[in-house]
Nucleic acid binder design. Structure first.
Lengths: 180, 180
DNA sequence: ATAACTGCAAACTGTTTGCAAGCGA
DNA sequence: TCGCTTGCAAACAGTTTGCAGTTAT
């Protein structure tokens, strides 16, 4: 009998706590990387920039410029629209935030790309939520195709829109109701 | 000796002519499909719409709304900006033109999706040209991943930015110089 | 000290829309 | 004829920018 180690009982609360701690530490580290980026470019760490960066890496959600402004101002009224719009290019330039383009009229930003720069997105047309996934196999195939065509890949962007199978079959799904 | 049929001499001009003919016939067919689409929706075939559609399917290039306006007006001054902007959604709705979103501030449109609705794009950062490719394997993997996540794919968008290997190694490539 | 940075409001850009006139089915 | 369609210009939304005062280093 080829063994797989199993546990009689698991303290799920503890595990959740540990995971939360790890995520938090990663986010703190990401912020530090951005501060280094600023220093390297002789840019200053102002209170407004600190608030914006705190806000960006306090969430795992994809957000718009308008949302970031709203969230940042909730923390500190001294953050203005102009500063948000001037800070976003710095964040994307640093590689710690990725700009995403769905068919919409405004841009989305993704704060989860520090560790997983190549992840892809599935946008559910039923609930409008954005899900992330990674596939090493797809990446390898992309590399192969590109190489055959004489290119070496710089960035890749795979965005899939899809319908929820659970919803289609059972009339509802755990992600409903849609948020606007 | 397993045989492969070969030819002593080939009239390349003739072959090119034949291919041109096939492409032309396809484009004419695509236009007809759009006219049918209009009829099905009780929409009228005006002279302006005809000019715009002729323009769209006279090229294989990806274009912007502004370019389409310019090209259309070159054929017929009576085409206005408003009509171009009102016709583009019809074209995308019909499925014969696809909207693309690169990081840019304006949208690109792709007139080549009537026959190959799933093709992907490689944007060369050296010459800014857009190349197309299809990969059944990548599509299958996408389907598989989506299915595992509980989705059925509606649309997919794979956009790769890359650098030209030929250019990197030899200092120039046949696609240079860049066009703005 | 001094150059980067800020908020504000105005400017800008691509896209959409209200309206009165025009035209296809 | 009827109502879809048009061009024009004004409106719109997200984003960028000029400026005078502020602040990090």
């Amino acid at each position: 009998m080829r063994g797989k180690r199993t546990y009689e009982s698991v303290d799920l609360d503890l595990i959740e706590l540990i995971i939360k701690g790890i995520v938090l530490a990663e986010k703190e580290n990401t912020k530090k990387r951005f501060y280094d980026f600023l220093a390297r470019k002789n840019l200053r760490l102002t209170s407004q920039r600190r608030v914006i960066v705190d806000t960006v890496f306090a969430t795992e959600q994809h957000f718009t410029a308008a949302q970031l402004l709203q969230w940042s101002r909730a923390r500190d009224k001294s953050v203005s629209k102009a500063t948000v719009y001037r800070t976003l290019p710095l964040l994307t330039e640093s590689g710690l935030v990725r700009e995403m383009d769905f068919g919409k009229d405004y841009r989305f930003y993704d704060p989860n790309c520090a560790d997983r720069p190549n992840h892809s997105h599935i946008i559910c047309q039923d609930c409008n939520k954005i899900f992330e996934f990674e596939s090493e196999e797809i990446e390898q195939l992309e590399d192969e195709v590109a190489r055959k065509m004489g290119f070496s890949i710089q960035t890749r962007r795979l965005e899939i829109t899809a319908r929820c199978e659970v919803l289609r079959r059972f009339g509802s799904c755990k992600n409903m109701p849609p948020e606007k």
